[in-house]
Amino acid sequence: MKLIFALFTGLVFGVGIAISGMMNPAKVFNFFDIAGTWDPSLAFVMGGAVILTLIGYRLVWRRNAPLFESRFQIPISSAIDARLVAGSAIFGIGWGIAGFCPGAAIPALGTGRWEVVLFLAAVTAGFYARRLVASSQPTTKAA
């Protein structure tokens, strides 16, 4: 039951990604290209998603526990460290080069396009690269 629920959750998220335009790199580039062929659509994606999640999370957290687990697992760290800032800055550069982010590319696999497979293989290589160079440092190191 838990896995069917997880699958349904992924389907809802994926349909949202597809309808929103997030899985279309041309649209992602144009969102950032304010000096050129600007298309502000993706601001509406973030707006819609954050409004619903902001309210929905608070309703869900009135419960003592989720439906299929014994507790909520929410990150508690509030450390603004070098890893967070550098990692986010690096992620943005990659997003600006390729036009895909992981949350858009996973559902985009369902279109069967080879570019998406190539991108996700490269992302996986990036995960391994991160493990090689930065796995031994503490995660809470101050910036």
């Binding site: 949202g16 597809a18 309808i19 298309d39 509406f44 994606v45 998603a49 409004i51 989720p66």
Partner: peptide, 27 residues
């Protein structure tokens, strides 16, 4: 690309619904 505020906002709502459902089901 075409400016699609309604589709993008609607898609965003579904993305948010997915996030809320995962919190509700699996925390």
């Amino acid at each position: 690309t075409m400016f699609t505020p309604f589709a993008s906002f609607g898609g965003g709502l579904l993305i948010g619904l997915g996030a809320v459902l995962l919190m509700l089901g699996l925390g």
